[in-house]
Every structure is written in C-alpha cells, then in structure tokens.
Design a protein around this nucleic acid. Structure first.
Lengths: 356, 356
DNA sequence: CTGAAAGCGCTTACAG
DNA sequence: CTGAAAGCGCTTACAG
C-alpha cells in the first residue's frame, strides 16, 4: 500500500508538503498542490488513519457501548448515533454488552485501548470500576438511556413517568385493578425507574403493587417468559402485565401463547419501548414510545461538545403512550406509520397526562 | 495516560523489556517480569493499540459492512460475527450501508483507511469500483449473504432454493395459483436469486409469474408497502404475496391492514427470513429461515483463515421453510421457541422437499 | 511556500 | 536475559 513517501517521491516534493495538501493547509503553492493531487490519484493513495491517529492523538472515533444489539430499541439508537456522528465527521465503533457486565467491560477496555475520542454508554449495571475510573480519568463520556447516579457524566435519556401514568390511567379506566410488572435489572436506572414510576402511578389510584406482581427480569425475552409463567401460576394472576422493555414483552407473549391463553381476553399486556411490529401483533400492543432517534442524536452532540471543549448538556426527552388493543380497549384506528418526530410534536389527547 | 516509557521508568527496565513482558516473550527474567507487572498495575497502564497497530501492521480488527442494521436478519448476523471474532481475538467494526451504495463505499473507505485486517461484506449493489479494487489489491475479504459474481472472493451464504420450492409446494397444496413476489434489488444476488428460485419452483407447477406479479422492492419496509398496494390495485390481485425479506413483509402487512383486509382470508403472505415476532403477528407468518448465526460464524472463520494465511473456504448452508398460518393452513402447533441449530438438525417433515 | 527533523507509542532484529 | 536503536506513517513547529 502506497505511503506518503511514495506520493512525495511521485510528486517531487517532501512528505511535509504532501501532508499539507492532504490537510488543506493554506500555505501550499498551486503548482505543488496539483502535483501532489495527481500523484495521490495515480497511486490510489489513502492516508493511513492509524499513523495519523498516533501522531495527532485523536481518532475521530466514538465508542458506543449498548446493552443488547438484538433489542430493536438499541439498534435504532445505534443507527441514529452513527448517523449524527458521521454528520459531525466521526466514526463509531459499537460494543454489544449483551446485558453482561463482563462483556461490557471487555468492550470498554478495547475501546479505550483504541483511544477513541469519546464514549457513549448505556450501562448494563450500576457501574463497574472500569467505567468509574474512565470517567474520573477524564475520558469524554456521555450516558445514553441508562445512567449511573453519582457520576459526573452528562446523561441523555427519556423520562417515561408521564407516559407510565397515562398507561395506568388507561388501564384503570378499562377496569383493571391487578397490575403486574416485569422489571428490568434493579442495577440499571431504566430497570428501577420504570418500576418506581409504575408503582407511583398506581398509588395515585389507590392500587398497591404487591411483591408477587413484581417480577424480576433482565430485559431479555427469556426472562419475560419466565416471569409471566410465574404470574400465571399465581392463585390470583394479575389482569395486566406491563413489560419494562419490548423483548420481555415478546417473552410474555410466548408464555401466554404456550398456555393457550389470549391477550387481552385472558390477560392484558403493555410494553415499554415501541417497535413497528407491535402494530401487527395479535393483538396490537399498547406501548410507551421513546424518541429514540432524537436521543441518539442528542447524545452524540453532547459527547462531541465535550470532546471539542464545549460544555456538554444533559438532555431529558419525554416518552409517550401509544394505545392499541392489548389492554382491552378497541383500537382507536391508529394512524398509519406513526413517525416519531411529527407525532411527538403534536401529541394526541391520549398521549397527554389527563389527571394528576 | 501512562505510556510504555512510564512503565519502564517505574519498573527500572527498558521499554523493550516492558514490551516483551506485555507480549509474553519467553526470554524475560522472572524478576523483570514481576517488576514490570507491578508497574503496569501501579500506573493502570494500558498499551496503546494505535501505536501497536502502526508498528505491527495489524489491527486485529475486522470490518463488517452490512446493508441495513435495522433489519433483524443483519442484526443477528452482526451479533454472531462479533461473537466469533471475539473468540478468535478480533474486534469488529460495523458499517451500516442502509442499502445505499454511496454509504457502503463510505464505510469501506473508512474501514480501509483504518487498516482493518479483513473485510466482511454483504454488498448493497453489483459491486462498486472500490470493492472490486480492494479485492484485487488483495485485501482479505469474504462475502456474507450477498455476493458479487465474478470476483475471486470466498462466499458464505445460504441457499434458499429448496426452501422456496417447499414454500411453493405448500402454497399450491393450499389451492393458491396466483402467486406474487416482492423482489429485492436486482443488483443484489439475494434480490435476484429469490425471484429466480420462486419463478423456477412455480414453473414446476405449471404456474407463470407474470410481470404484474413481480414487484420491485429494495428490501426496506416502505417498498413492501408500495408494491403491495400496487398488487391490491390490480384488476385481479394475487392470492399470495411472498416478500423477499422480513422488512418488506412488514410493509406488506401495513398495506393490507390500511385497506382493512385480512391475512390470509383476503390475501396470503409469506416472507424470506424468519424473525421471532413472526410467531406473534396476526396471523403468524410463514417464513423461510436462514441459519443466520452459523452464517456469521462461518464467515468469520473463512476471513480469519484468509488473514492468517490458511486457505479460506466458501460455505453454503440450506435455509428451511417454517409453516405458520399466513397462507391459510392451520397452525401446526409450532413448538415453542424454535431455536436455530437444533431445528436445522432435525428438520420436520414439512421442512423437507417432498416432491420435485 | 517548502523541507529537514523530531516525535507520537509501540515492536523487534541486533549485539552483548 | 537485556538494552539501544531503528522504524511503522504520519503531522507540525522551526528555519529558511
């Protein structure tokens, strides 16, 4: 592979001049520039990014560590992150933690070894020493979606409390009283916050959330199945199961189906995180939708601000309830293909918190 | 950040010795090793992968360029690729082409600039000059899923012909005669092969595949919707729509639903690529399942063989038909959670080609 | 405007 | 077993 030396030789200039041309340095004669460009073309030369990074101490690369690529929510997040990063001149390397703290650390370590310019993390746990150290050591970092309390790192996330309250109002209105939740890991903020929001909203309606109706999941489908089976085995099963993410909802559906039961006739179901397939499931599933794309973009902007020396900003965006038929109400003729941005700009009545 | 020099100073040895310890070079005294390790620990030293790569001319990194991360098929492929790569000591950087040749080239260029050790590509098109040049220049490369004919690069893919024939047999047995297909881009192998397999299988049953029943999609949901609307507008709409990937099936479902029609009563639907949600859609969707995880792993092994100087091998794995209810047949009580590997080892009767 | 030279953080023959 | 030194491919003050 041709190096800068080859180009210099071909163009009859020094490597310094080649470098200047390549980096759009102003003080290069037109003649030199033309000769260099011609040589670059002739040799098919491409600068070695590894060497450049070593010299400039920047890689123009962002690391993104997410908890589970197979979760459509994170896939979409990853996509929007890459898009915004590309627009700002950065590449992104994704690390998939698979909800495993050890894998998360593996990826963070690898990313740090590669000297990425900044790190976007959605922590799988309460914070490994590695993350904490990196943050303390001054690695530019931003938390997306999930975060670790007590660490001085900007957080870009969505607040689902209002939407959860809307959901409980919806369920209550439908006559449901025994509501259960499949929670995410308590060590994650999204894991605990969603349960707390649910519990708080239920309290407003004078409804208790007994331990038996609080199942511990891990954001993966299998745990949703297992917890739902437990619910169904109860002497008095819940009337509604609220899954704290879409994969656990999938598992819940598997469990319900395996028993030959029907949603919502035998048990109602709702999920945190909306995905396109929810429109076509049997029945369509009521869900809480996050402004995923916007979260990803805001996270990148915050991180790049931090990297480039501007003060980064934490961002919290609201989630919203999307009512479908899985809790018993007739489908309110959902508009086709509800795109994220327009919809969140003009919220429908059902989206708004109606009481407090 | 501490460098190798700092470690050497701390340990009272030369950087060469530090390097030897770090790389498990045999000729290092126990004493030196212990002092270096202690210094590494004390300083929290991590080798700079950028510098190491520049020096050794290898990055221990694989590039993976896929056509669409949002497509669950590719997400799963990416996941298995990363898993196998990690097991073999490599990292992977994913580039998402979004079915856009220009974006694909952008990622390939970036990856090449970063001097990845090898490239896994599922080409979005018939082959840009960039890919062709890279292949010719000797960049270790392997095609996964899609490939480019006439290029000397190993291919790891699945052959869906038998499964497509099974599908047509299934449809024919159900009494369907007017079968339509939503094809992928003709420039991709999977785009054209699936249509060809479908057409050939239909011919065996004496069924023609008229142009009006061949819609041109681009593997994205929106095109599936558009094409399906066209089918439904026909004076004589097809009885079955076969979508060449799962996203176009999603779009087809959107279109059918928007008209207030029902699957399979008004029109039957089948898809290439199986996803977990297909079990829970209304109705459950008949699909052709690829051994996605195995494809990803085989692709990595082939690429690493190539990188490490062993002869790489092309691999073709069979896909299989999974019958559900979207074409009219009653659901044959599908076993719960059909995992990929065991299922493909003991194919059910319906999975096997019964005639020819 | 241009080039020689230093240096980024490593690895690895080469001597000893 | 160990260290001094060269060199990977760049960028960038420093002189001119």
């Amino acid at each position: 592979m041709a190096s800068i030396k080859d180009v210099a030789a071909e163009a009859g200039v020094s490597v310094a001049t080649v470098s200047r041309v390549l980096n759009d340095h102003p003080s290069v004669s037109e003649d030199a520039r033309a000769r260099v460009l011609a040589a670059v073309e002739a040799l098919g030369y491409r600068p070695n990014a590894v060497a450049r990074s070593l010299r400039t101490d920047q890689t123009r690369t962002l690391g993104l560590v997410i908890s589970d690529v197979l979760n459509p929510y994170f896939t979409e997040l990853a996509r929007s992150v890459e898009e915004e990063a590309r627009a700002l001149g950065y590449s992104v390397i994704i690390g998939n933690a698979d909800e495993r703290p050890d894998l998360q650390d593996h990826h963070i370590r690898t990313l740090l070894d590669r000297r990425i310019d900044g790190l976007l993390v959605s922590p799988t746990d309460g914070g490994s020493p590695l993350i904490l150290d990196a943050a303390r050591a001054g690695t530019p970092m931003v938390f997306v979606d999930r975060w670790i309390p007590g660490v001085d790192v900007p957080v870009v996330r969505s607040d689902g409390r209002a939407a959860v309250r809307d959901l409980v109002a919806h369920l209550y209105g439908l006559g449901h009283r025994r509501l259960a939740i499949i929670a995410g890991p308590a060590a994650t903020t999204t894991g605990s916050e969603r349960v707390e929001a649910f519990r708080a909203a239920m309290a407003e309606y004078g409804l208790p959330l007994p331990d038996a109706y609080t199942g511990q999941g891990d954001f993966q489908a299998e745990s949703g199945r297992r917890v739902t089976e437990g619910f169904l085995d109860l002497p008095e099963p819940p009337e509604v199961v609220f899954a704290a993410d879409n994969l656990m909802a999938l598992g819940a559906l598997d469990a319900v189906r395996a028993r030959g039961l029907r949603v919502p006739r035998d048990i109602a179901l709702a999920a945190f995180d909306d995905i396109r397939w929810f429109v076509h499931t049997d029945p369509p599933i009521t869900a809480i939708a996050q402004p995923t794309g916007e979260l990803g973009r805001a996270a990148v902007r915050a991180l790049v601000d931090r990297i480039e020396g501007r003060p980064p900003q934490s961002v919290t965006l609201p989630a919203r309830l999307v009512v479908r038929r899985s809790c018993g109400e007739p489908d309110p003729q959902e508009p086709p293909a509800p795109e994220e941005s327009p919809a969140s700009q003009e919220p429908s009545p059902v989206t708004n918190r109606s009481q407090t």
